[in-house]
Amino acid sequence: MQAPATGVPVSLPVLAAYRYCEAVTGGQARNFAYGIRLLPTARRRAMSALYAFSRRVDDIGDGTLEAQEKASRLQGCRDLLERVRTGAVAEDDTDPVAVALAHAAGAFPLPLGALDELIDGVLMDVRGATYRTWEELRQYCRCVAGAIGRLSLGVFGTVPGARDADRADHYADTLGLALQLTNILRDVREDAANGRTYLPSEELARFGCADGFARGLPAPGADFAGLVRFQARRAHALFEEGFRLLPMLDRRSGACVSAMAGIYHRLLVRIARDPEAVLHGRVSLPGGEKALVAVRGLTGLHARRVAGAAGGGA
């Protein structure tokens, strides 16, 4: 998949739709926004359209509506995708996300079926799915995050002659898994308070944490730190494999991926160093540290540090 052409013209209605999607992205996805600001304009806009659609799907899943109404609204998102696939979205459509996504799909070879997978993953949440094994959780992560990695690759493309380019989809998918598992660790208490447990039940039991964390504390005698570090090592291995994508991308696309994934990798390192911090508040990086990761992404420094520090701190 070589880097796509980006010469599709942008009319004023489409430009307005993209600006709406960029506002959504900037307001609700600070880590994501740090990365995509490194992209050329056409790619940045396309990534914003993908984010705005994904945000809509996630907000339905995370909202307070009854499960039946959530499922109905998610079907509406599938209907929107079908309109995009069939070219049925006009530039004067009243839904700016539909307009921007339709234009992006015309400019880039987006695997729109991956957005169906995202909806499938959110439906798992709506239905209260739990996961017994890592393989079961991996399938969920592949739907809600690996799919975004594959869509992003549709925007980035690969450089001509890239070695192992036939593995690019796999590496993009794997990097998405790494980000999602890091999210799960960061949000473990918040998710538990909302009645959700994502970590595999077999592994929770192995570390004495089968009762969960809704009260903000693991059960007496539980090895919560051991559980978190075990998951962090898994996530680190996923990052290490996923970063093999970077040499296949052009400099600015590689910088974008390195910045976004780098921020999450630094979060992972911080969580692994102090596992119980996730039980007391939301672990995050200050803006200056995120900016540093972005700069390192431009030079390729962060990915090299990840590759050379396997197991260290995570």
Rank of each mutant, 00 (worst) to 15 (best):
A225M: 11
A214C: 07
K70G: 01
A309I: 02
G216W: 08
C141N: 09
A71Y: 07
D93S: 14
D79A: 15
P4M: 04
H236L: 08
T197M: 11
D62Y: 13
S253P: 04
R83V: 13
Q139A: 14
C21F: 10
A90M: 14
A67Q: 15
A314W: 08
V257S: 07
A310F: 15
W134T: 09
S48L: 04
A272F: 05
G176H: 07
G254M: 03
D92W: 07
A178K: 02
V188Q: 02
L177P: 03
L249Y: 01
L112K: 06
R206A: 14
R186P: 02
T25S: 15
L65F: 12
G208Y: 05
L151I: 04
S11T: 13
L301G: 09
A222N: 07
A147T: 08
L267P: 00
G254T: 06
G63A: 13
V10M: 11
A17E: 07
D211A: 15
A193F: 10
E202Y: 13
A210K: 04
S284L: 12
R78M: 09
N31V: 09
G113A: 14
D274S: 11
A165I: 07
A23E: 12
P9C: 03
A52N: 03
I184E: 00
D187T: 13
A193M: 15
D191H: 09
Y264F: 09
A192L: 03
L292V: 02
L123G: 14
A277W: 06
R138M: 11
A88E: 12
A107G: 10
M248C: 06
V97L: 01
G157Y: 02
A219K: 14
R282L: 12
G149D: 05
P13C: 12
L238C: 01
A310E: 13
R296A: 13
V278Y: 01
A272R: 01
F230H: 14
R305H: 12
G313T: 11
L298G: 09
A303Q: 10
I60S: 04
E135D: 15
Y140I: 02
A210V: 02
A104M: 08
V306W: 00
W134M: 10
G63T: 08
V97Q: 01
Y131A: 09
A17D: 02
M1C: 15
H265A: 10
E203Y: 01
P111V: 07
A107F: 06
V144G: 01
S152H: 08
Y140G: 02
E82D: 12
A33Q: 00
F32S: 01
F156M: 06
A259D: 00
G297P: 05
A42L: 04
P160R: 08
T25H: 11
E190M: 14
T299S: 15
I119C: 02
P286Y: 07
L238R: 00
I263R: 01
C141K: 03
S48K: 00
G27D: 09
